[in-house]
């Protein structure tokens, strides 16, 4: 991949991420027997949010949020430049920490509860990501995405990694059943609650970047077989949307339990699978 191409992919990430999000919303509406919004709805929302009056609760709140968005974008750039998987995971963690601090910096109970819950869900999904990164290392012998993408396809040994990542996807994207950190009906969006106007757009566009972040993890499991990788992404996209539509939100402690038992468990199974059966 040429540098220019990678740069373009990274730079326009919010744009095609937005299209993914629009497709997601339409898909969800179709599953609920509705017509749903237009595919370009996220961009209409974005342009609308630009034209609204700017509200700032306090300066740190907004600044942390800008940090969050920029560092997340940097992580997406790192993915497209074929960076180190561990750096990417920790970069994403750093971005999430900015997000959480931003939630704590306002004196709103919903925002702080959202931060608490987000922190707990980070504690839940971050080990799974790391275990799965180890699995990928065991199979390909490297953490560099560019080298992984050049290696021959070895999906057989990464089946359990894929399954375990399927638990991470809804948690990072805050989709049901693992959306306790957002919980629109309980804490009105959690950390998002105090943002308005153009600054809410940052939170909104960060959702697209998060989508790219988690789905690129699934994409690299197929290594050099890009068609199979796309198939994996589309499959998990459908699976996650289906599960989102057919489950209720579970509580944060059930979330921790479920993620540690099944997500982390599958990650450990994956390590043994690779060590015992594939090498």
């Amino acid at each position: 991949m040429s540098i220019v191409f990678s740069f373009m992919l990274g730079f326009f990430a919010p744009i095609y991420g937005g299209i993914f999000y629009g497709i997601d919303r339409v898909l969800k509406a179709k599953m609920q027997r509705r017509k749903g919004p237009p595919v370009l709805q996220p961009f209409y929302d974005m342009l609308k949010l630009f034209s609204k009056t700017k509200f700032i609760v306090n300066a740190p709140h907004t600044i942390w949020m800008i940090f969050y968005f920029l560092s997340l974008w940097a992580v997406v750039f790192m993915i497209f430049f074929g960076g180190n998987l561990l750096y990417i995971i920790f970069g994403h963690l750093l971005a999430t920490v900015f997000f959480i601090i931003s939630g704590y910096s306002v004196n709103s109970i919903f925002s702080q509860l959202g931060s608490n819950r987000k922190l707990l869900s980070v504690v839940a999904y971050e080990p799974i990501l790391i275990v799965n990164a180890i699995c990928i290392y065991l199979v390909f012998g490297t953490f560099e995405i560019s080298e992984i993408l050049a290696a021959p396809n070895n999906f057989n040994s990464l089946v359990f990694t894929f399954l375990s990542l399927l638990f991470v996807v809804p948690t990072v994207l805050k989709l049901s059943p693992f959306d306790a950190s957002k919980a629109h009906q309980e804490i009105v969006g959690g950390i998002e609650v105090e943002f308005g106007g153009v600054f809410y757009e940052l939170v909104y566009a960060a959702k697209f970047l998060e989508m790219i972040f988690v789905y690129s993890f699934i994409f690299i499991l197929a290594s050099n077989d890009y068609i199979f990788g796309t198939f994996l992404v589309v499959f998990s996209f459908f699976a996650v949307a289906l599960v989102d539509n057919s489950t209720a939100r579970i509580k944060i402690d059930s979330l921790l339990k479920a993620l540690y038992m099944y997500g982390f468990g599958l990650g450990i199974v994956s390590i043994f699978w690779i060590l015992l059966c594939c090498i």
């Binding site: 919303r25 509406a29 609920q32 027997r33 509705r34 017509k35 749903g36 919004p37 237009p38 709805q41 209409y44 929302d45 609308k48 609204k52 509200f55 629109h184 009105v188 969006g189 998002e192 609650v193 105090e194 943002f195 308005g196 106007g197 809410y200």
Partner: peptide, 21 residues
């Protein structure tokens, strides 16, 4: 609800005054 489906006009029920129009 599905029969009337306001979301096809782009409507979201936000419940948060700071993000409402």
């Amino acid at each position: 609800s599905p029969r009337y489906d306001l979301e096809r006009l782009g409507v979201l029920n936000t419940g948060n005054p700071k993000q409402a129009d």
